[in-house]
Computed example of a mutant assay.
Amino acid sequence: MDIEAVRTFVAVADTGQFQGAAADLSITQQAVSRRISVWEKSLGVRLFTRTPRGAELTIDGQALLPHARELLRVAERAVASVRPGRRPLRVDVINSRGAQSGLMRGFHSAHPEVELDVLMLFEIETAVAAIRSGAIDASFRAVTAPGQSLPEDIESVPVLDEPLQLLVGPSHALAGARSLTVAQLVGHRIWMPGIVPGTEWGAYYDALVAAFGLSIEATGPNFGSDALLDTIADTPALATFMGEHTRLIWPAGHGLRRIPVTDPTPVYPHSLIWHRDNPHPALTALREYLGSAQPNQPESEAWKPAWAAADPHGR
């Protein structure tokens, strides 16, 4: 359906004159008459009766008018849904309980006027493709793992180096420690079923194992964080890593302990990536917020893979 014909029909109905509608629409009276005539032929009915006072709606025109108004409202909503500044800012955070979600919650508190759509994509390739297509505006990722590089039109900036903590049950041999060095973790079984080969977090933990000789197991299905917490609480020989800013809640009877790791502190590198030509005004506000609202960084020496500090474009 020709939206401009619908708009012209409503303008004539509102002003009661073809000339008045032409003035409102900034077109000629002849153009108004032509649009109405073409639409009447398409519908097979007369919409207006010309009178000495102007144009009056016919019975068919009166029946059509409320539907025409709704068509214009739908058209405006459709345009607004994709217009930068009028549609929500769409950001990928990978998961709902991690540091990235915490950063977005902080941004929302600081900028409640910005409407947000928070998504959870999986692979970095999927996120980059979504950014380039305009499906999302930005994504939090660890860039760039071995074998990965960002296209030239994708920008990135580091936003958070998140310290890792060891999570153990009450019967674990390390449960009484106030803090642990990386060397003290050697020989202990660290279970992380969420590690997926080929992902940037998989590459991170591969590098951690290679650097310090840790034993990280990713065996078994990943039934989610609740099942992981249950297993760690019930198995004295198992521990797991979690980010310092990860928000997890478990039953009081689990008796789980979160223990800081030091000398050095392994940190997971979070970066924000976006398309360099993205015009959404809230994207600038998000980048400025992330640059000014850094959580506390580790006091001890930090460790992260060499690739986390490399040029993300592979130059």
Rank of each mutant, 00 (worst) to 15 (best):
L164Q: 01
R83S: 15
E217C: 13
P84F: 02
F122S: 11
G220P: 13
A63L: 10
P193M: 02
E115L: 13
S300A: 14
P170H: 09
K304N: 09
L214P: 07
P84T: 05
F107W: 10
A252S: 14
I136H: 03
A227Y: 15
W274D: 02
T219C: 12
R287Q: 06
R105N: 14
A175D: 06
E123S: 13
S292W: 07
V157S: 15
E301Y: 10
P264M: 07
H270A: 07
H67G: 08
T15G: 02
I195W: 15
V186H: 09
E125C: 05
R7S: 04
E113W: 09
L64P: 00
E125F: 10
E56C: 03
T49A: 14
P251E: 09
V10D: 08
M120P: 06
S101W: 13
G44R: 04
R247I: 14
A110V: 03
I27Q: 01
L89R: 00
P84D: 09
F212M: 10
L72V: 06
L47A: 02
V196D: 02
V82C: 10
R83N: 13
N95I: 08
Q184I: 01
A282L: 06
V74I: 11
W201D: 13
V32Y: 13
A68R: 00
A233Q: 03
V209W: 05
I131K: 00
E299G: 11
D311M: 05
A285I: 05
P158D: 07
A282Q: 04
T8F: 08
S300T: 14
A145D: 02
F18L: 07
L214W: 00
R46S: 12
P264W: 13
P305R: 00
G176V: 08
H172F: 04
I136Y: 12
R257S: 13
S171C: 12
P158H: 02
T15Q: 08
A78V: 10
A293G: 09
I195H: 15
L228P: 07
R53E: 11
D60S: 11
E217D: 15
W201R: 15
A207H: 05
A293Q: 12
V196G: 11
V45G: 00
V12R: 02
Q148R: 15
A5I: 04
L72Q: 03
V128Y: 01
D161A: 15
R276S: 12
G213Y: 04
L25H: 07
G106K: 06
A80D: 08
S33G: 09
P298S: 12
G16P: 11
A310T: 06
T246E: 12
A145V: 09
G169K: 06
G85S: 04
A237G: 12
I136G: 08
L47G: 00
Q62T: 06
K304V: 11
G213V: 01
P251D: 08
A129I: 02
H188T: 03
P305Y: 01
I259H: 04
D226K: 13
L89C: 01
A282V: 02
V182S: 02
G54D: 02
T262G: 07
A110L: 04
A218H: 14
S171P: 10
H245D: 09
G253M: 11
G253L: 12
L71E: 09
E70P: 04
I136V: 15
I131V: 12
H280N: 10
A23C: 08
G20Q: 01
R90G: 07
A138N: 02
